[in-house]
Design a protein around this nucleic acid. Structure first.
Lengths: 337, 337
DNA sequence: GTTGGCACTCGGGAACACAGAGTGCCAGTC
DNA sequence: GACTGGCACTCTGTGTTCCCGAGTGCCAAC
């Protein structure tokens, strides 16, 4: 039904359309790709491909354009991820290596990815929920105020100012700090609530108000950051590509953390590349766009995701190559630091 | 030369053009504003205003449009900043009051401002250079690694991981921490380098390598953040307003921290509203846009700036009112926390 | 199954006309 | 002297028509 030549025709259509941005006709196809058959034969194949929903014509008597289904087939079976050049790899490596903290890593990554793909890059901050506690610190600021700092194994720092119910002396703070660290060191953030549940009971009664206050702030900060931060860059690249759908919608979606999160996050397999094409995307306003995303994280366990968003008509092999490469390098950087 | 009625005509032109986005003619002007004179008279006035460069016509026989010079006169002499409604004020207050940390304050502010003005909002992070040290903390992570944390009076936290030259025991770290805090507490960030210059000399020789390492990281982190962070929101609002100049340029400028910084920052008087109109703006690509900015900060001293960027054809009184109000409320919030 | 030929269909651009909005100018009026 | 009504003029934007060309679908022939 869909024999090899028809697939070759589909691949040729996708490639030509991506590079020229114009509906591609049978004649041009026969000329540019040596398929070994005449335009008429190609027309027959194209008629079949259209009937099966892989391509469509914008109007009668125009060339063909791939449908979302056509792109899907192309990505799944007709293309290979294109690796980056050695020069590009080196550039990525040195650029990311200069990062000083987790903030910087994320900022650099998102810019790098935007520049590399000439599209909009999206990077999620490394998830708190999958990381572990490296250290908890309590810093007295004044008699009744405390700075609470939580440091994770990904180098992320959460801090809150705690208003205390009573004046508390330094010794008690030190004691609580020691207990917290003994209790939490190395444990996953998701298990923190369980671990600290009975902690007040193990303290002398006079320390319990302090402990309760600090713990409530600790737990609150965890919940807060459940909704994780996402940044993007390269919005200017949208201006070049003329969207069928208004780019207002796209820009709005980009500023909606929630939407972005679900775009990056909803996936079956975290370790490989996820490609979501046009209407596969559940959000109206992002119908004309595709997303290529990958997970990243230090040492096997995925911490967060990153990806790019661009017009459905994008160069998938190249984009996928760039996303994969950047995800790998970021993982390396995070593992090293 | 430029009598009252001509100014009234100019004001009417600006107001009508801003609300309709179409060149405004003498007849429409005479109808919508009761200037008490006939269209013919208005035509005479308009001819004079045009000759003086306050208005222009896109083509012969179209209505008039304000020039940058016309907007400037309007802003300086013909308009009053429009205060927000009580409801808006309450909304701002409650929305900002919910912020948990400085990051959250900035994020909320920029979104608020974007939504309020329906334009692109830009907010600069409170400057480190004008704030003071509240606390320095050193947290041992492992035998040869230290987490260095600097907390400022604006609630901002800078942290770095320090790789130590030798294994260092806890007591020495505690000692150095005490010395650092004693030395730096409350002092302005700009004076930190001076204050710590002779600190190694006041330590026993065996502590000096540790101190030197920590200090170098401290100083480096100050330099790093000299180049301050700026965030923006509301890019989607650009899509609605049709720019004469490509909006690609505008988006690019928005992602260039340096450009934004100078847009917000270059100003004579920090305390009042700054308005930069169209070509007054030194950056090509931002010719068709205006910037309304204001400083904010706790307790009189300005910490940073915020503002909005929109098409030259914007509602200046309303926009200026919103920017001013938000700047005030943010200052309040910062002073309170 | 493949190919060349042919009639057919649209979209996009060029040429054109036209209505409408707005102007500048001038002579007349208060 | 300042204002007003009238009038001729000049544009832009829009709608219409027309035509070319690219591309197709179909069919008969190989």
């Amino acid at each position: 039904m869909v024999d090899d030549r028809k697939l070759a025709v589909l691949r040729a259509i996708v490639e030509d359309y991506v590079s020229t941005n114009e509906p591609v006709g049978s004649k041009a196809l026969a000329e540019r790709h040596n398929l070994g058959v005449s335009p008429a034969t190609i027309r027959n194949d194209m008629a079949v491909l259209e009937e099966q929903g892989y391509i469509a014509q914008p109007h009668t008597s125009a060339g063909r354009v791939p449908t979302d289904k056509g792109y899907r087939l192309f990505v799944d079976r007709l293309s290979q991820v294109k690796p980056l050049s050695a020069a590009e790899r080196r550039a990525i490596e040195t650029f990311l290596a200069g990062a000083v903290d987790i903030d910087d890593v994320v900022t650099r990554t998102v810019r790098l990815l935007a520049q590399l793909t000439r599209q909009v890059a999206v990077v999620q901050y490394p998830s708190l929920t999958r990381s572990t506690v490296r250290h908890v610190e309590l810093v007295p600021l004044s008699e009744r105020r405390l700075m609470f700092v939580l440091i994770t194994n990904t180098g992320r720092v959460e801090q809150r100012v705690v208003e205390l119910p009573d004046v508390v002396d330094e010794a008690r703070v030190a004691h609580l700090r020691a207990m917290l660290n003994a209790c939490l060191d190395g444990c996953g953030l998701t298990s923190v609530p369980d671990k600290v549940a009975d902690l007040p009971d193990r303290l002398p009664p006079e320390d319990r108000p302090l402990a309760a206050t600090v713990l409530s702030v600790l737990l609150e900060s965890l919940v807060e950051r459940q909704e994780e931060k996402i940044v993007f860059a390269g919005a200017a690249n949208l201006a070049g590509a003329d969207f069928t759908v208004g780019l207002r919608d796209v820009l709005e979606a980009l500023e909606e953390q929630v939407v972005l999160m679900r775009l990056l996050g909803e996936t079956s397999d975290p370790s490989t590349l996820t490609v979501r094409i046009g209407s596969e995307n559940p959000y109206t306003g992002l119908q004309g766009t595709s997303i290529v995303a990958a997970g990243y994280g230090s040492g096997g366990n995925q911490l967060a995701r990153l990806g790019v968003l661009g017009p459905t008509r994008m160069d998938y092999p190249v984009t996928m190559g760039a996303v994969r490469a950047v995800a790998r390098y970021v993982s390396q950087i995070l593992a090293a630091s």
